[in-house]
Simulated assay, not measured.
Amino acid sequence: MLLLNILFGCKSTYSDVHYQKIENITIGNGLTFHPDKELILISKPTDKKSKDGKPIYRIFQLEFKNNSWCCETEVPFSSKFTDYHPVFSPDGKWVYFNSDRPIPASNKKCEKINIWRVQYNDGNWDEPEYLFEINTKNHESYPTIAKDGTLYFNSDRAGGKGSMDIYKSEYVNGKFTKPKLVEELNSKDSENDLFVDPQERFMILNRYLFDAKEIELFISYNENGIWSEPKPISSINKTGVWELTPTLSPDGRYLFMEVNGEIQIYPFKKI
């Protein structure tokens, strides 16, 4: 535990009890921890339906009180459209998320998924921001943020290797730079949910393997700015099981993922 805290550069707010209690929460496409408050955000489908009959997803926040995660409430920045996969930035000041809500100057639901972000300040939420520098007419989704503000995400825009591919945009002088394909992380298959270590030393992602019709977790390491070829995490992947939305606890001790709407937890040191 001490070694992991040194690696992640933090003194954890969370204990094993915090993590164990999360296993009882039902989610759908998203779990994220505030780095130094007893606060998590999740997303899950609601009983509301879109015009095409699909469940509408919303984002909810929970606090840790009386030895349990409780007080689940929908976040103030919700829309009547689908919002999901919230991700706190490492400093806890921003939440990035996926949404098909209308883009600025439009009232029409988007046919594609876009990335938005909203500022969080001591319990208060600002108005969500559409990321003009990142979004296109294609899908942009599953953001993950490094400590220096670098944004990684996936997209099916032209120029990739497969269905969905991973891109990177640096944050310079308050703006995101033009996204670049991260060649080493991508394949002919579909790179989907991803989590980057705040110091960009490694990345965990899942990949839909078209031939096998499987979704499995992979890990890649960053060596002097070059990402290694992603390798399957054989200690976790199971045949016939889709391992979704990987994320790490703020202290780096545990890997969380979603399987069939339930949260599974693995000690990261065993990966």
Rank of each mutant, 00 (worst) to 15 (best):
M1V: 12
L4T: 14
I6H: 10
I6W: 05
G9T: 08
C10I: 15
K11F: 06
Y14G: 07
S15A: 08
H18W: 09
N29M: 05
N29S: 11
G30A: 05
H34W: 08
E38L: 13
I40Q: 03
I40H: 06
L41H: 10
I42H: 06
S43F: 02
K44A: 01
K48T: 12
K48C: 01
K49E: 07
P55H: 04
P55N: 10
R58E: 05
R58N: 10
I59D: 01
K65N: 12
K65L: 10
N66H: 10
N67P: 00
S68E: 14
W69N: 07
C70M: 11
C71N: 15
E72K: 15
S78Y: 03
T82Q: 01
K93M: 07
F97V: 08
S99W: 00
D100V: 08
R101G: 02
P104F: 09
N107C: 06
D122N: 15
N124P: 00
W125M: 07
W125G: 08
Y130Q: 05
F132Y: 14
N135I: 10
K137T: 13
K137L: 04
H139G: 00
S141Q: 12
P143V: 04
F153A: 01
R157T: 12
G159I: 07
G160T: 11
D165E: 04
I166N: 02
I166G: 04
Y167G: 03
Y167H: 06
K168L: 10
V172L: 12
G174W: 10
F176C: 01
F176Y: 15
K178H: 08
E184R: 11
N192I: 03
D193T: 01
E200R: 04
R201K: 14
R201Q: 12
N206L: 01
Y208G: 02
L209A: 01
D211M: 09
I215K: 12
E216G: 09
P232S: 09
P232D: 06
N237P: 09
T239Q: 12
G240I: 04
G240R: 07
V241Q: 06
W242C: 04
E243Y: 00
D251Q: 10
L255S: 01
P267A: 06
P267H: 05
